[in-house]
Computed example of a mutant assay.
Amino acid sequence: MAAAPVCSVVIPVYNGAATIGEQLAALADQTYTEPFEVVVADNGSTDDLGAVLDAWRDRLPLLRRVDASRARGVSVARNEGVRAAATDRILVCDADDVVDRDWVRALATALDDHAFVGAAHETESLSGRSAAWVPVDSPSTGLPVTWEGRPYALGGNCAFRREVFDDAGGYDEDFPPGAEEIDFAWRAFDAGHVAVYVPEAVLHYRIRTDLRGVLRQQYDSGRGTATVAARVRPAGLVPKSLARRVHHELLLVRRFPWRGSADDRRSWLVLMAFEAGKLVEARRLGVPAP
């Protein structure tokens, strides 16, 4: 009989059979010596996820799959996974990334002193050329910071005690994808839980390799950013007037890298997708875009 876990790794997944094996292999090779469970929160997969998980049960005896299919969305899956976890120490990663060997140990140890932590990341090893298309620091040197100097942890690379999840009210399931982690961290901050960076825990982050997928991801991130700004109305954020907004967008258009490389042009398109998402969502909400 397997020993009781001291922490829980939650993996939200939808049709992740093609990639989750790499993540499970990494979790089976951790330096952490204490028992930990792996909770796969299945958001309604229709692929061979079950067969892939079965192949790993010998190496991960505390691996289990929970039903998170009541509604579609990563926030739904995260919430169901956290609620099903057997411990009060929750580590969250995604099915298409790969954690480093010290990831569990570093985050679980950090939770001894901090209620909410975020890990480091790098993007090159799993993403190849597409790592240069998105404005994500690699390797990271700290947690990203949003308005009012508030740090936040990436949703698929963090850990927290259950009290943080409860005090924040979980992840907002109606929130547009792309900035739900900022919204979660903002509510946790208001409840007194400030995210702390753990550089010893490293995640190998996979950026989509198809340009259409990257553009959709960044468009959604722009939508989410506009929604966060409209909801929390951060101090110091002065929305641009229509004239300033038009001027800003025209400057971006003029920066198109005609003489740059193909990757430079892809990076420009990714930036414009983010800007478009902000504008569209702000207009839908009837508020100025941030």
Results as ranks from 00 to 15, higher is better:
210 D>F: 00
264 D>A: 12
287 V>N: 09
17 A>V: 08
191 A>C: 07
164 V>P: 00
184 F>P: 00
225 T>W: 15
227 T>V: 13
246 V>I: 14
95 A>Y: 14
241 S>V: 04
80 E>D: 11
116 F>K: 05
144 P>Q: 13
283 R>L: 11
33 T>L: 12
185 A>E: 08
137 D>A: 11
196 V>Q: 14
191 A>V: 02
197 Y>L: 03
275 E>R: 08
128 G>C: 02
227 T>P: 02
81 G>I: 00
128 G>Q: 07
227 T>E: 15
119 A>C: 06
260 G>E: 07
242 L>A: 13
98 V>R: 14
255 R>E: 15
38 V>W: 08
234 P>Q: 06
155 G>Q: 07
258 W>L: 11
20 I>A: 15
237 L>F: 10
14 Y>L: 14
63 L>W: 08
195 A>K: 03
58 D>F: 03
44 G>S: 12
276 A>N: 07
89 R>P: 02
178 G>T: 05
45 S>V: 07
267 S>T: 13
138 S>L: 08
253 V>C: 12
81 G>S: 02
257 P>H: 06
25 A>R: 15
240 K>N: 07
226 A>H: 09
153 A>Y: 10
220 D>Y: 11
46 T>L: 09
198 V>A: 05
279 L>Y: 09
210 D>R: 02
223 R>K: 14
109 T>F: 09
233 R>P: 01
79 N>M: 00
161 R>Y: 10
15 N>I: 05
194 V>N: 05
5 P>D: 01
124 E>Y: 12
132 A>P: 00
9 V>R: 00
199 P>I: 11
185 A>H: 05
273 A>P: 02
3 A>F: 04
68 A>H: 03
145 V>Y: 14
